[in-house]
Every structure is written in structure tokens, then in C-alpha cells.
Simulated assay, not measured.
Amino acid sequence: MSTKSKPATLQDVALLAGVSGMTVSRALSKPDMVSQRTREKVEQAVRELGYVPNLAASQLVTGRSGIIGALITTITNPILATTIEVLQQGLARAGFHLLIGETRFSQEEEGKLLRAFLGRQLDGLILAYGYHAPETLELLQATDIPLIELWDLPEGEVPRQPVGQVVGFSNWAAGAAAGRHLVECGYRRPAFFGFDDERENLRFEGFRQAVQEGLGIEPLRLNTSPVPHIDDGVEVIQRFARGEIDCDGAFFTNDMPAIGALFTCQRLGIRVPDQLGICGFGDLPIARVATPSLTSVRIPAERVANATVDLLCQRIRGDQQWDALVDVGSELVARESTALRR
């Protein structure tokens, strides 16, 4: 004979916690709607009984899965890691669970993950990249779930058409700020180091215009790997030391290769900012404590995440008025790696 006990039910939790079944359901699905004391009693009962909610049954009753999907380009990017953390916390407070998929900047992988996610009856979808393969775009346009694209505002000569709401910043403006800063600091041969894709092409266009307006020259551009890595910066400085790259100011479109470049300059005896000015993108914590400290373009990751949670909750509640686009902006933070040249 089996000695296994029957799984605990919602009513078992309600009885142990001394509340109604409806209160238990509310405490688990919408914790903000019950008092902290009630929530703690329910959570204690859940732990003691080992209760696992039947999500399928709940979905039949409420019409919701309680799951928000997020397709992220790479979880190794510290900016995105911060965004994911704040998203998860905010969605949890609203009673949702976050399901994460990593595309590694592959449109093919994005399409596969999207099909898998849509089969789970999501309540909402977050995309951390605004450029999609045609077949993926068709899937996204056909879905009726709330959808938010992060990071990339629609811009350029022919702006892309968003498939949902957008929370992000201008890549063009971020690149222009970096180029303008290097010129104003006295660098006369600025260079751009980033991947060749839609968003970084926009950053380059902004960078190029700022350099052309300030110096009347075409800036050097060299492409790095699609997933930013510290080794990208190491390779750039090794080539710079061999005389293969002619520049006196460098804008890296991610702080990780910028830090790799900074450390390699120190190892090879290249003086920063005198011989080479270095600017990054993302303003990671290491940028502030590096020696010399790293100039970087700051993106407000927490603001992006919080705005996304607010918009998703508005849409899921069925609010009739909501913002189609939220521009969180960006800010160039000047530090020692690009000090003014005399």
C-alpha cells in the first residue's frame, strides 16, 4: 500500500491559516490586495503543508496564467541583469511569475523561444530587442497579449514599426553624446567600436554626426563580437599598440570591452587619458571604481524595468489609457578616462 499522503489543497491552507479560501487565492495571486499579517499567515501555512497551487485550474477560473514571458538578448549583460532583477521583483509584487529566455542575439533562437512561450498562454510578453525576423514579426503581430519592447526607441530615417508598447532610449542620442564628449575633450581621431546591427548602427550614426560636426572628419569604425566581452577591448588595445588602429579616443558600445581596453592599456603602459581616451556604455558599477574611472553612457535600467511593470499591469487590468512609448533617456557620465586634454 502507498504511504504517500494526498497533496494539500487550497482549503487545507485556508483552514490552517484561519482565513477563507478566497483570501488564500488572493494572497497568492495578488499579494498587494491583502494585509501583511494575512499574507504572512498564508505563506506560513503554504510552507507547513507544502502546498503547490494548481495553476491550470486557476487559469480556467481567472482566464490568466500568472506568467509574463521575457526574451532577453543575453543574461550576461549586467545592465540586463539589473533590469531582469527589478522586473522580477515588480512583477512578483503584482502577483506574476517571470519566465526568461535568452536569444543570444539570434533571430532564429528568438523565433523558437517565442513559439514555446506563446504556447504557455502568457499574460504578457517582454522583448529586450526591437528588431525581428519577418516570420517572428508575423507571430508577434498576430498575438493579442500585452507586449512591451525594451531599450530601442523607433528612430532613424525609416523608423521600425513597434509591435507593442516601447520603453527605451534613443541609441542615436547616446552615440552622439559619446562622440560630442570626445571632441569637446580634445580628441582629434575618435573611433567607434561596436557590433554591426540595427541598434548599434544607430549609435554609430549619432557618433559620426557629432564627430563630423566637431572635427569635419569621418570617424573610424571597427566591429566587435555580437555578445560584448571583455576580450573585445583587449584585442582592440593590442592592435592599437601594434600601430594597426589609428585613434586617440575610443567609444565602446558596452562597458565590458571598455574595461578590457582600460586594463590592457595599464598592462602595456599606454597612458589613459593622455595617449588614449576611453568611453564605455552602460555605466556598470566597475566604471566608477576603475583606475582611472571610466567615462560611460548611463542607461537607467531600473527606470526601464519599473515603467515596463507599470505598463504591463495597466494593460492586463484592461485600462483604456496607456502610453505607447516611454523615453527614459540616457546620460553621459564623464570621468577620468576622458579628461580634458590641454
Rank of each mutant, 00 (worst) to 15 (best):
G243R: 03
L99S: 15
E48C: 04
E149A: 07
V328K: 00
L99I: 13
E108G: 09
T83D: 02
L340T: 13
I245W: 01
N223D: 12
G175H: 06
Q212E: 14
V158P: 04
G318N: 09
L91R: 11
L122R: 07
T38H: 02
R203Q: 13
I299F: 00
I148V: 12
V19S: 01
A94K: 13
G18Q: 10
M256L: 14
P228Y: 02
W172S: 06
A258T: 02
A81M: 03
A191W: 03
G260T: 09
G318F: 01
P154E: 09
Y131G: 06
Q121T: 07
E109D: 12
F169L: 12
A334V: 13
E184G: 07
F207G: 04
S296V: 01
W322T: 07
L16Q: 14
W322R: 06
V163P: 00
T73Y: 10
A116W: 13
A14Y: 05
T83R: 01
L122T: 08
A307M: 01
G214P: 09
A241S: 14
D152H: 08
T23F: 13
L312A: 05
D12W: 14
F240C: 00
A191I: 03
T143R: 10
G164S: 05
G63C: 06
V297H: 07
F281K: 01
F195N: 14
T62K: 11
G124P: 08
A116Y: 11
A177Y: 03
Y187I: 04
E218Y: 09
H132D: 07
F195T: 12
R298C: 13
S293V: 01
I148S: 08
K6M: 12
I237Y: 01
E336R: 03
P159L: 10
L139C: 04
Y131L: 05
W322L: 08
D246C: 08
I126M: 02
Q212M: 11
S293N: 02
S106P: 08
A324S: 14
T38W: 11
R315W: 05
S2A: 08
L114Q: 00
L311P: 02
F204L: 06
L113K: 06
D32F: 12
W151Q: 05
G249I: 04
Q59P: 04
L127F: 10
G111Q: 14
T23W: 07
L114M: 07
P154W: 14
V61R: 02
Q11H: 12
E213P: 07
L284C: 03
A339C: 10
D197C: 11
D12Y: 13
R37W: 01
P7R: 14
G63F: 04
I259C: 03
N54D: 15
F252Y: 10
P300R: 09
G318E: 06
I245H: 02
I217G: 08
T291W: 14
D123A: 02
P273F: 00
W151R: 00
D274W: 10
A142V: 06
T295C: 10
A178G: 08
A261G: 10
E138A: 15
Q44Y: 06
V24D: 05
Q161L: 08
C313D: 06
A14W: 04
N254V: 05
V13T: 02
F193Y: 09
G249F: 13
Q121C: 02
L114I: 03
R335E: 01
E40A: 15
I286P: 00
